[in-house]
């Protein structure tokens, strides 16, 4: 029976309007809608599909964060995960990626698993590093920007398809493996009503940083958070001839807008 761990982050929803607090170093979270980071959701869907394909399996959702993350775990359980582990501490609100990978490693080294799946990046810090740091801690291979995972029925190997510029790389790997998932072909499923009701009975193991022997997270290095510059008035590419205008436009798009 395959054992899959899915690491989730609970982040401001993609539709949420995020604003910096007056200190400029963190965002205002009051009244914000939070949800499972989208690529983590894709990863969970891949885990559910892998379990379907292999006919049996146990999926454990893991999250490291402040108390609100429990809602994300409940959604994961409602989607079909079997159990959850929650390292809970309000201080984790500002934890950086290196620290997070360390905490995950402390939890996971005591768990049995064939494969670890998570999103290639969380859409709050967009740093795309946790999978690799975790892989180094656990001495495992890791493949990122994955769009397809095919686990062999004997659970000894897996084929992983990764998105690269202009195409795809297909990797063959032993298990255990860490897979960092990007956008896949499968839309994450909606929890069914019966599964939402069943989720109540599934276990969530809560742990503290102290239990893991971890010191609190170091302070953030962010000096300021600023919105992207507001749209200015249109810059018309001028010139006496259409050729001149086009040349000027291309110059603007290249040098100013940095589009190509």
């Amino acid at each position: 029976m395959v054992e899959i761990l899915v690491c989730l982050k609970f982040v401001p929803d993609t539709t949420a309007i995020v604003r910096p607090r007056p200190d400029g170093k963190t965002i205002e979270t009051a009244g914000l809608k939070f949800s499972i980071s989208p690529y983590d959701e894709f990863a969970l869907e891949e885990a559910l599909l892998a379990r379907d394909a292999l006919r049996s399996g146990k999926i454990t959702a893991i999250t490291v964060g402040p108390p609100r993350n429990e809602e994300g775990l409940r959604t994961a359980l409602a989607m079909g995960a079997d159990a959850a582990v929650f390292v809970k501490d309000p201080l984790l609100e500002q934890a950086g990626t290196v620290y997070e990978a360390d905490i995950l490693a402390r939890v996971i080294k005591n768990l049995k698993f064939d494969i670890i799946m998570m999103g290639k990046q969380a859409i709050d810090d967009d740093s795309a590093q946790v999978p690799h740091y975790l892989a180094e801690h656990l001495n495992l291979p890791c493949v990122s920007m994955v769009r397809k995972v095919e686990i062999a029925p004997d659970l000894k190997s897996t084929k992983v398809t990764r998105q690269i510029e202009g195409g795809e790389e297909v990797h063959q790997s032993t298990l255990p493996l860490i897979v960092a998932v990007g956008k896949t072909e499968h839309m994450p499923r909606l929890p069914t009503l019966p599964n939402i009701m069943k989720a109540k009975t599934k276990p969530i193991t809560v742990m503290t940083l102290q239990q893991l022997g971890a010191s609190p997270p170091p302070p953030s290095k962010i000096m300021s958070l600023t919105p992207p510059p507001a749209r200015k008035n249109v810059k018309l590419a001028d010139g006496d001839t259409p050729e001149a205008k086009v040349d000027n436009l291309v110059k603007l798009l290249r040098e100013e807008a940095k589009l190509f």
Binding site: R74, T75, L190, L193, I196, M197, A199
Partner: peptide, 15 residues
Amino acid sequence: TPEQQELVKMAEKFA
């Protein structure tokens, strides 16, 4: 309740 919150989330997404 937590179940009702999940219900609303799911129904909203479906809608």
